[in-house]
Amino acid sequence: MSARAIGLALALLGCEELTAGTSHFPDQIDGGVADGGRREAGAGEADAGATSLVGRWVLFVEGPQCMSAIGTQVENLVWNFYLLDVLEEGDAGDGARALRERLKICRGELSPLVGGLRSTVPDTVADALEPRDTSAYVLGDDVGAPYLGSEFVDYWGMAAIGADAVPPTAVDDPRVTDADGDGEPGVTFVTTNGLGEPVCEVRVAQRTRVRVEGVREAPGRFAGVAAVRVDQSVLDATSPLCRAGADIVPSPTPGHFVMLRVDGRGGAPLNLDLDGDGQVECDELRSSLAVIEEMGAVNRSTPDNAACR
């Protein structure tokens, strides 16, 4: 009997390679279920009430950029996931609340360019960046209340040079730092091909300015538009393909953001405290990204290259 016949026989008998099933239990939110079933009071779409916003949130920002890649203009989407702590809230008058926030980036992703080429931001880069403080205002307590965030700036691989200064371009510029601790200047992105195989590494200094403005869509969710501007200089690369700098400018396509409460309190649609230690950390956020996206809690756009030409 041939090996193929034996394989076929085993397959018919159920000896084929096993695959794990998928859960038929819906995600459970604060004791209720996420598929339209029972929800606890406060988690619905009604008035939010004056529930404190102090707690842990996830901020998802999509920022479309235009850049040149292999001789053509393409749209490149920046997808950043942050853990956002609302540390304090104060009365700003007329029913508005002033929020003091602390942001920590946990995952940075970029959409594919041309020919399957894609820059990947290793999580070690995000892990190496310190949290930064910012502020925001919520103009009311109810669903529909405007949310206005102050601009915050992430500096990757360089000192805090300010919002308008030109990023350093030379490896030996004293403002360049080895932010991810890999022994190379700046931060290191890995460019992969369509098969996910590394093509080259590129060391960059990058400033990302983000400002968000939206409304409270539910007690545990804000959403709206995001203005994202990326200024990047290539310091070094392991191949000429990656050494060519890309002139990055914001795309005419508007960016957007979603802010979800994830500490299980105050109408949070999720509790990402997976290890039950009372904290939500970047590892817990990263391991939950697939679930967050499957729930439709955040949505990613498809690059529109025509918008950049």
């Binding site: 695959t19 859960s23 939110i29 939950s288």
Partner: peptide
């Protein structure tokens, strides 16, 4: 092979 756990059921 264990089916992945849904969210919100952890004691």
């Amino acid at each position: 092979l264990l089916t992945p756990r849904p969210l919100g059921y952890d004691p």
